[in-house]
Design a protein around this nucleic acid. Structure first.
Length: 844
RNA sequence: GGGCCGUUAGCUCAGUCCGGUAGAGCGCUCGCCUCACACGCGAGAGGUCGCUGGUUCAAGUCCAGCACGGCCCACCA
């Protein structure tokens, strides 16, 4: 095709132009008719759309996109869908804050409800259905913002293959997988103590915990024993009313006489046994601890292993129950009335006063800071309450399964490799099964009903299971087969499970969701097990582990062959970015200032898995590279209207350059195969700058002069440019596509990745260019030292070199003389050195 | 308490797998409007490779220990 080269090529506007073009051309459209061997499938992380956009979002996705583009150019049909994680608590919270509303499931649906323009204060209570409608509406808006960012930044996803973790297809997949887990005994429900967030009023899973440092105080409290007071140091005196036993280490000589006896609790006078358990730490506090139901997870362990009674007072809302507990009588009941209905921190202060008054508090409470468990999205410490919840087995209570899952972790290819250790430690440290039920609203419902006996008791052990063709279902509004809606909640009738599933219970199925496991087995077989799971390091314990678990149960395989784990993004001062610190850098302003290619360059410049600071300097370099590509391309393509055949490449210098470039192609390809996009970029970049600085300067005169030697240069420039554009295409998709369009049909992103074979018959000795460049460099130095223009003529260049070097330089002598503006070159044998006799300058 | 990653020029980072004369870019200094590019080109200065030992003819690179930073995990009496 005839070349069309703009006079003043520029980067501005390229992203809009090419995004629109790729969309209409279907450049990244997935062809599902290809076979599994021809397909490269990527299990893209669905971003949390209700979260904010930040540089971390861009960072990992761009790195993955570069790899996807490499695979596509390498001949693979790339399956690269995009999803949105809109399901779950982050969306609920955003909707609550955005509109000023709260969900009250007891309210009826109001079909005419419209949210206020500004957040209502105090919040308006609305029905569950109204609330969910708002969630759907707002996530749609958020998804548009994300899609726009991904398009501007040039992700080569197939926009016809999008999904949302709350959409009907995802719900169906999630419910089907859960029911399969249930049928195989991998999912079960039980009534047991769970970690509970009192603000969100939901159970939370081990993977969602985080420890935070909080101030506390040791209260040294006297229990009354047969041989006098027994002192216990506790940070939670408000739970003395829940005390069921004291416990010390079996080998602790101080407490040996007490084992088997009973003591009475201070103020409440409840008689509790003194027991021995190896988990009790003689070094902590006084070495003897009170067991309450429940103050912490150790209490749960003791309670279970020592078979203790349950005396719980903490309610789901976090307060101590109003009613006097049945095990408290007389004075105990009167004391309890002092703390009934309070929050734990209020009750704690009151108890300290009461204990001090009664003389049971020894000394003043001693202030400490200690680690307290929080829900990672929560604001108040977790409590432990007993409730019925659904679990999926994960090896936390089953050594055989744990071993299988550890083996899956070893089987997986990790990039970088050390990330596998995080998985291993997580699986080794699991202490219980995965709690998947949540007492929330915006999520995938647990697809079960329960029969209610004639006595009104709910039979949780024999859930009513929907048929596959009914999925997805909402058991709170749909009726199971064989029942009538009027029987809901009635004796002899049924009830729907009111809970939803943990968001990870759905997003752990992204391979099954995008692969259409539930509705298109043929499609699924073409993409699964998938090739690549790219993700962040912080969700190895959640998303990566849970996806591995579900695939292990459902398919008996790993869900993917390789997992690439990107690094953390730090702010420009190398601090972790966080909203509370206020140092979050958002991508859009940077993209507008430096251009998308610059931001992509920054992301791809970071090594796989390495924590990386936002660096405007690196972005500037990326922008400079993109501009250089435009200008160098204009030069390389400016000599002829049409392509010059490769046979014209006869000059030794041209063949030398191409030999070096062939080496770069081989090395860059190897780096990409190793998932080291950053190395591939570095190789291409270093080669390209050398090319423009030395080779282009050396052949410039010959290229302008024309003739056979000129045609050799034209053909060599053209071939090299074609290779460079393709080497850079994964990183700088817009500028490479722009230049490609000047002289090539079709998209560079569907062009073939450069092959070493393309250089067959046009390569020479790579040492020629190196030798000539070395001499040219010395002449430039001489001119610089003389503070002269590079245009200054040189009367004579005296080159001292060994015989072999001299021969190499002579192969491109005329190019060297033209580039150096030398009238003559002389050679002598010896240690390499160059003496340049500069022409007299006019004023010197 | 356990673990993982990092510590190389003023800054941001390569180089460590496979030991052999310290690299890039930015910034800085000095030049150059050279017909692809002044959003450019050329040149230069700048580092006892966190610390202490060890192995070796030779250590930024291998081994041991330590310090500092970041992250993950751990039963919060």
């Amino acid at each position: 095709m005839t070349r069309r080269i703009p006079d003043k090529p520029a980067l501005e506007g390229l992203e809009e132009k090419w995004d629109a073009h790729w969309e209409t051309e279907g450049t990244y459209r997935f062809d599902p008719s290809k076979t599994r061997e021809e397909i490269y499938s990527i299990d893209t992380p669905p971003p949390t759309v209700s979260g904010s956009l930040h540089m971390g979002s861009v960072f990992g996705y761009v790195q993955t996109d570069a790899h996807a583009r490499y695979r596509r150019m390498s001949g693979k049909e790339v399956f690269y869908p995009m999803g949105w994680d809109d399901n779950g608590l982050p969306t609920e919270r955003r909707v609550q804050n955005f509109y000023g509303v709260r969900c009250d499931p007891s309210l009826p649906y109001d079909p005419d409800f419209r949210p206020p323009d500004t957040p209502a204060d105090p919040p308006i209570s609305i029905s569950r259905k109204n609330f969910i409608e708002l969630c759907h509406g707002l996530t749609k808006e958020d998804e548009k913002v994300f899609e726009n960012l991904w398009r501007v930044i040039g992700l080569s996803v197939d926009w016809t293959q999008t999904y949302a973790t709350i959409d009907t297809h995802s719900q169906r997949t999630s419910q089907k997988a859960f029911l399969n887990n249930l049928a195989r005994g991998e999912a079960y429900s039980q009534d047991a103590p769970v970690l509970w967030d009192v603000d969100f009023q939901t159970a939370v899973a081990q993977a969602e915990l985080e420890d935070r440092e909080r101030p506390g105080a040791y209260h040294r409290v006297a229990f009354h024993g047969p041989y006098g007071p027994v002192y216990v140091e506790t940070t939670r005196p408000e739970l003395i009313c829940s005390c069921v036993a004291l416990v010390a280490h079996p080998d602790d000589e101080r407490y040996q006489p007490l084992f088997g006896t009973t003591v009475t609790t201070p103020l409440f006078g409840v008689e509790v046994p003194v027991l021995a358990h190896p988990l009790a730490d003689p070094e902590k506090g006084t070495g003897i601890a009170m067991i309450c139901t429940f103050g912490d997870t150790t209490d749960v362990t003791w309670w279970r292993e020592l078979d203790l009674p349950t005396r719980a007072v903490i309610q789901p809302d976090g307060r101590l129950q109003e009613a006097i507990p049945e095990w408290l009588t007389g004075d105990g009941a009167r004391v309890y009335s002092e703390i009934a209905g309070l929050f734990p921190n209020q009750a704690r202060r009151r108890m300290a006063e009461l204990l001090a008054e009664s003389g049971d508090l020894d000394g003043e409470p001693r202030q400490i800071t200690h680690q307290v468990k929080f829900y990672e999205k929560g604001e108040r410490p977790l409590e432990i309450i007993t409730s019925r919840q659904w679990y999926i087995r994960n090896g936390g209570r089953d050594e055989a399964l744990r071993k299988e899952l550890l083996e899956r972790g070893e089987e997986l290819r990790w990039v970088p490799d050390f990330m596998r250790i995080r998985y291993r430690h997580w699986v080794e440290g699991l202490t219980g099964d995965w709690l998947i039920s949540r007492q929330r609203f915006f999520g995938v419902a647990i697809p079960l009903w329960y029969p209610i006996g004639d006595d009104g008791a709910v039979d949780y052990e024999h859930p009513i299971v929907p048929g596959d063709d009914q999925l997805p279902i909402d058991p709170s509004s749909e009726t199971p087969d064989g029942y009538d809606e009027s029987q809901r909640g009635e004796p002899g009738g049924f009830m729907g499970d009111p809970d939803i599933m943990d968001t990870w219970a759905t997003s752990s199925l992204t391979p099954q969701i995008v692969g259409h496991w539930v509705d298109d087995p043929d499609f699924f077989a073409r993409v699964f097990p998938m090739d690549l799971r790219p993700q962040g390091p912080e969700i190895i314990r959640t998303w990566l582990f849970a996806t591995t678990l579900r695939s292990h149960f459902e398919h008996g395989t790993l869900p993917w062959h390789t997992a690439t784990i990107n690094g953390w993004i730090l702010d420009p001062d190398r601090k972790k970015m966080s909203k509370s610190v206020g140092n979050v850098v958002t991508p859009m302003p940077l993209i507008e200032e430096y251009g998308p290619e610059a931001v992509r360059y920054w992301a791809c410049n970071a090594r796989p898995g390495v924590d990386t600071a936002v660096d405007f300097g690196v972005m500037k370099i990326g922008r400079r590279l993109a501009i250089k590509i435009l200008n160098a391309s204009r030069f390389a393509l400016g000599f002829t209207e049409d392509d010059v055949p490769s046979e014209a490449i006869t000059e030794p210098l041209d063949r030398s350059m191409l030999a070096g470039l062939a080496g770069t192609v081989a090395a860059a390809t190897e780096a990409f195969e190793d998932y080291d996009y950053a190395r591939a970029l570095e190789l291409a970049e270093r080669s390209f700058w050398d090319w423009t600085d030395d080779f282009v300067e050396l052949v410039k005169t010959r290229a302008y002069d024309g003739g056979e030697p000129g045609r050799s240069a034209h053909a060599a420039l053209q071939l090299a440019l074609s290779v460079y554009l393709r080497l850079f295409a994964p990183f700088l998709p817009f500028v490479t596509e722009e230049v490609w369009s000047w002289w090539r049909e079709g998209s560079v992103h569907r062009a073939t990745w450069p092959q070493v074979g393309e250089f067959e018959g046009v390569t020479g000795d790579p040492a020629i260019l190196e030798a000539v460049s070395a001499v040219l460099g010395e002449v430039r130095r001489a001119k610089s030292d003389a503070k002269a223009s590079m245009r200054l003529e040189v009367d004579l260049v005296e080159v001292t070199a060994d015989e072999e070097q001299v021969e190499l330089i002579q192969m491109a002598e005329s190019d060297l003389m033209a580039a150096a503006r030398a009238r003559a070159v002389e050679y002598r044998l010896g240690e390499f050195g160059v003496t340049s006799h500069l022409a007299d300058t006019a004023d010197a």
